[in-house]
Design a binder for these strands. Structure first.
Length: 928
RNA sequence: GCGUCUAUAGCUCAGUUGGUUAGAGCGCUACCUUGACAUGGUAGAGGUCGCCUGUUCGAAUCAGGCUAGACGCACCA
């Protein structure tokens, strides 16, 4: 093995081999005894690139996939990409705009062709980045939401829902994005509070008998007012109800109506009603049969319904003009500052206009019911559990889903119109004609609109498995085991998958929903291009120099004026750019940070720490190989005598394995990572490897003993690599190829760790006695190191120690561990003191009741030792006082459970005994 | 308005059903080139667990309140 760990030199070739050898492939009709285990990848935007959130979630999915594959399950990680209607269309449209063209210049067909080209061009980015992350997904089954099969499923679902009366077309007020010229769903509208104004304007009564004042945040909509409303019980306005208003500017006559909806306390208690441009007004308009006057064009300019002076004005210019006119007319009473929620499109940021159009809707209630029940019954489980509350809250108040989009990129709605305004829905035009008896003389044209992207994503769990055909995949992999995703798409995607899958397969789509937190930057800010704090997972893997990083962060910005600030910040945070940490370190970091809390502040220090961990594994493996590669490891027989340390590390490994598997089963990847980290570094490297040296370098050790230790070294490492593999696939594969042939495993050339069985627990290797014995050994060694450290005795200086008050058990333990202790504590002599035997002045360490004495002569400073003793005593005294307090508390003794009291008593006794020894020690030293 | 979450060491975070001496990594201090590893080793410093009240023999942990922050949903024109 190379002397230094260099991730980039090992990762690429591993992955290529795995993929070429077909190791990711699901065996759909595998051994029926195998448990199916399936994970669905939330399909990323086909033209997108990998961000930290993807890297994080995909790491978790891959850990689970690799783990279950090694456990012997029939495992499938289903991948695919999403056509992402709006996002993708916008990208290509922007490219056209840069050339001074619009999509309308090209026409629909050519434009869609352009998008397909763009998809071919940049469609591979994210999937190749997934490969860099080590994703072991079945690429042979990769699908795209606009593939023929998926499109077929989309049409099928649409037609069936329509047949069942759950899809309908209607003219309603929708959220209209005037930049994109399309309707969007409620979920795609973000309401942010912004500073605005409240205009108070006086509307005169038509009969000239007076006027009332209305307050509005959108004065320009007065062009479409069709009523003024007051509360029916509002005494101020009783006389006005039923009268007519003469609307300023337009001169139209509109009624004053009474409606409970009006809050008399707010504003003036009089509300202008614009049914065609406000959702509440729309409802009121329907209640009172008011006319609905649409005053805007699709790009939110004033249309021909308005007086000529305003036609063609943008809504915000129209606002200015109207306010000006009202002021001139003397009907503008006042303007107050006012904070209001402004609805904006999540893609464009444009102010959304409520707009009357014909759209397709899914009647959602009937679909929602079984989807709610699936979670209530526990059939589907949210992890962490509290997300189910969020789910219920939305599902219980769910509104019909507007699924049509006035875009060109997406699944065309399977509806046709004849010249008489009849609508026919069918799988294709031929079916529509035959079903409805329409011959070729009837001209039909297909609906121009496409479906919301999320409509097709909602079918993901079954459409990817070949539905509507009855396939073995559907049989085997539905429901999938777990969905790993972010809370931001619970409504967009998760809920809709549950609804659609229940409806069309009768099954749930997945059993568990593991909701991950959001990856934020180190100070808790959301990563965004405009903040300039975005990290690219690939840059953490390969590294990036400062200049390239600055260039990357400041290029293609929407707000170029921020570039200087971002550059400064970047140069400060990464003066040397970003080091190459490798995929395994990054994956381990993601796993270690995946705790139950909601968001994750990404800390570069952790990646570096886990890169060091990789390095540790690398070097420990080099040590093991160095001692085994050209030696007898007992592979071909030969007697094995295991040392205390050998038996201990096996016992430790059993514990670690158990804790790891428990953590994985509970989706506690942080605990899983921490467990293996602790074992590998603090047990295997820090102790076990050191404990093998006294055996391997001991001329007096027998061949069987050396063979036993070498056998343990290589086999514990081999098992450890398999344990680590789901988390860090590349380094484990690379080392394993060298290690496995020396281990007890029967491997052939070219075998891969990723299809080996996961380590299994071996009860015979669990050994409480051995664990306790090594604990004692560690305390012995640490006690001496402690004194060395604090007394400034060089680690290289051999010491002779005396043991006082040793029990038979202490003697037994020393007997079996003498060589370990001599070497690790660097001792040249150990002498037992007989009872009552005088000891020279010494520094002392306690191991239980036994005292380890290091004679001070020439080594130890009197004052330093007194200080050390005082410090130790102070600590114990403080603790003992607390324990004593508890035990003298009558209520504690009578109420606490017996074992807790017993524990406290033992603790106190222990503390008192230690104090007695320390104080005797102090007297001896002080007397010198 | 309804709902969810967070507050623990200088920093980023763990802390399972109340019972330890409250942990880890990074950073910090001292010492160490000991034949796997300085991307390392050994030893150490550092915390009134946001604040208050309560429940309890016992609270970082449970309850109530407060403060600060994050988020979701619905909203008053």
């Amino acid at each position: 093995m190379d002397k230094t760990y260099e991730p980039h030199s090992i990762e690429q070739q591993c992955y290529q081999r795995w993929e070429n050898d077909g190791l990711f492939k699901a065996k759909v009709s595998g051994d029926p005894a195998q448990q199916p285990y399936c994970i669905l990848l939330p399909p990323p935007n086909v033209t997108g690139s990998l961000h930290m959130g993807h890297g994080f979630q995909q790491t978790i999915m891959d850990v689970l996939t690799r783990y279950h594959r090694m456990k012997g399950d029939n495992t499938l990680w289903q991948v695919g990409t999403d056509h992402a209607g709006i996002a993708t269309q916008m990208v290509v449209e922007r490219q056209l705009n840069a050339l001074g063209k619009t999509r309308h210049d090209l026409g629909r067909e050519a434009f869609v062709e352009k998008i397909w080209e763009w998809k071919e061009h940049s469609g591979g980015t994210i999937t190749s980045q997934m490969r860099r992350m080590g994703a072991s997904s079945d690429w042979d089954r990769e699908v795209f939401t606009m593939d023929e099969n998926l499109s077929k499923a989309v049409t099928e679902v649409f037609v069936k829902l329509h047949e069942d009366g759950l899809i309908y077309r209607g003219k309603r007020l929708v959220n209209w994005d005037p930049v994109l010229h399309t309707a969007v769903s409620d979920l795609e509208v973000l309401n942010e509070e912004e500073a605005g104004h409240m205009w108070h304007m006086r509307y005169p009564l038509a009969d000239g008998s007076g006027s009332i004042v209305v307050a509005t945040t959108r004065p320009e909509t007065m062009l479409g007012d069709t009523a003024v409303a007051v509360h029916p019980d509002d005494e101020r306005y009783q006389a006005y109800i039923g009268k007519q208003i003469k609307l300023p500017i337009t001169g139209r006559l509109i009624p004053i109506i009474a409606d409970d909806y009006v809050d008399p306390e707010f504003g003036t208690g009089c509300v202008k009603i614009t049914p065609a441009h406000d959702f509440n007004d729309y409802d009121m308009g329907k209640r009172h049969n008011l006319p609905m006057i649409n005053i805007f064009t699709p790009d939110a300019k004033v249309n021909d319904e308005a007086p000529e002076a305003y036609r063609g004005l943008d809504r915000f210019d129209a606002r200015k003009a109207i306010v000006e006119q009202l002021e001139q007319d003397g009907v503008l009473v006042k303007i107050d500052d006012h904070k209001l929620k402004v609805p904006r499109g999540d893609r464009t940021g444009a102010v959304i206009e409520p707009y009357l159009t014909d759209q397709w809707y899914v009647a959602i209630e009937e679909l929602a019911k079984p989807a709610i029940e699936a979670v209530e019954s526990g059939e589907i489980r949210f992890v962490p559990e509290n997300w189910s509350k969020t789910y219920y809250q939305w599902m219980h108040n769910i509104q019909d889903w507007c699924i049509s989009r006035q875009l060109w990129w997406g699944h065309r709605i399977p509806a046709w119109y004849d010249d008489n305004g009849n609508i026919y829905v069918g799988r294709d035009e031929a079916e529509v004609r035959s079903k409805n008896g329409l011959d070729d003389s009837v001209a039909l044209r297909q609906d121009e609109d496409v479906l919301d992207t999320w409509f097709s994503s909602a079918l993901w769990p079954f459409a990817t498995m070949g539905w509507p055909e009855k396939t073995p995949e559907l049989e085997t992999y539905l429901p999938s085991a777990v969905l790993v995703t972010g809370f931001d798409i619970i409504f967009f995607w998760v809920a809709r998958m549950i609804m659609m899958t229940k409806r069309f397969t009768g099954k749930i789509p997945f059993k568990d929903i593991y909701i991950t937190g959001l990856i934020r930057d180190e100070s808790g800010d959301k990563m965004s291009k405009s903040k300039g704090n975005v990290l690219d997972p690939i840059d953490l893997i390969d590294g990036i120099d400062l200049e390239s990083l600055v260039a990357k962060r400041t290029s293609g910005m929407m707000q170029p004026q921020l570039a200087a600030k971002i550059e400064k910040r970047t140069r400060k945070q990464f003066p040397d750019g970003i080091h190459a940490y490798g995929t395994d370190a990054l994956r381990f970091t993601f796993a270690a940070m995946a705790s139950t809390s909601r968001d994750i502040n990404f800390d570069m220090g952790r990646v570096e720490g886990y890169r060091n961990f990789c390095n540790k594994i690398w070097n420990a493996s080099r040590f093991v190989l160095m001692n085994t590669e050209t030696e007898d490891t007992g592979r071909d027989g030969g007697e094995l005598v295991l040392s205390l340390a050998d038996r201990w590390i096996w016992a430790q490994f059993q514990q670690t394995l158990g804790e790891f598997e428990k953590a994985i089963s509970e989706y506690r990847f942080d605990i899983a990572a921490q467990t293996v980290y602790e074992f590998t570094w603090n047990q295997f490297c820090d102790w076990y490897l050191e404990l093998t040296k006294p055996v391997l370098n001991n001329d007096e050790a027998t061949d069987a003993e050396k063979r036993g230790t070498r056998h343990t070294l290589i086999n514990v490492l081999e098992n450890l690599l398999r344990l680590l593999h789901p988390l860090m696939p590349f380094i484990t594969e690379t080392i394993w190829e060298r290690v496995a042939p020396l281990s007890a495993l029967n491997v052939k050339d070219g075998d891969s760790i990723m299809v080996q069985p996961f380590p299994t627990a071996d009860a015979a290797k669990q050994d409480e006695q051995v664990l306790a014995d090594i604990e004692w050994v560690k305390r012995f060694i640490v006690g001496i190191r402690n004194i060395r450290g604090e007394m400034d005795i060089a680690p290289s200086k051999p010491l002779s120690v005396l043991l006082r008050n040793a029990s038979e058990e202490d003697e037994r333990r020393l007997g079996i561990s003498r060589t370990f202790i001599d070497r690790l504590a660097r001792l040249e002599g150990i002498t037992f003191l007989a009872k009552g035997e005088e000891a020279p002045a010494s520094a002392a360490a306690l191991v239980g009741e036994m005292e380890i004495l290091i004679p001070m002569a020439g080594l130890i400073d009197k004052d330093a030792e007194l200080a050390r003793i005082a410090k130790a005593m102070e600590k114990i005294e403080k603790d003992a006082a607390r324990t004593k307090g508890k035990l003298t508390n009558e209520k504690f003794v009578s109420n606490a459970p017996e074992d807790v009291i017993e524990k406290e008593r033992a603790k106190l006794a222990d503390a008192e005994s230690q104090l007695a020894k320390l104080s005797a020690q102090r007297e001896t030293i002080a007397a010198l």
